[in-house]
């Protein structure tokens, strides 16, 4: 890669302090560091992964509104959590988390437990009990 070929496709990194340091050759073939704000194929790959997650979340949301799943299932998927990982962060067991994805169990949860779950997901309790 030559210095002038280093991509500067800022879509994702631009607003943060994160940058890619690239190695590229100058006209004499010597390597130097060049700072980049991103590359399109990489941005595409990241966005593609998110599109898939958002699509699946919307499908779960439909089920939440239909009453077959609890809002927790939706938020968990939207925030790329799995029952195992959320169990780790919240202190519940994996089995309990899976149980909470059922609307009946979820509606019986006490405020403290909701709070624990919301904290682990880094959202508010109000958000947790709605599907928005």
């Amino acid at each position: 890669m030559k210095i002038k070929e280093v991509p500067q496709d800022g879509v994702i990194l631009e607003s943060s302090g994160v940058r890619d340091v690239c190695y590229a050759v100058d006209e004499n073939g010597n390597y130097t560091q060049v700072i980049s704000v991103g590359w399109e194929p990489k941005n595409d790959a990241i966005n593609f992964a998110w599109e898939a997650i958002n699509e699946e979340s919307e499908q779960i949301k439909v089920k939440v509104i239909a009453g077959t799943l609890s809002p927790l299932a939706y938020h968990m998927h939207r925030l790329v959590m799995t029952p195992a990982i959320l169990a780790d962060y919240s202190g519940f067991s994996k089995r309990e988390i899976k149980k909470f994805c059922e609307p009946e169990t979820f509606s019986r949860l006490k405020y403290d437990d909701l709070h624990k779950l919301a904290d682990a997901l880094n959202i508010s309790v109000e958000q947790l009990i709605s599907a928005d």
């Binding site: 990489k42 790959a45 593609f48 992964a49």
Partner: peptide, 18 residues
Amino acid sequence: EKKAALNLAQVIRMLEEI
């Protein structure tokens, strides 16, 4: 088709992401 594309995107992310 879908999952294959996701797998490919994962490889690209690992190729290019930090």
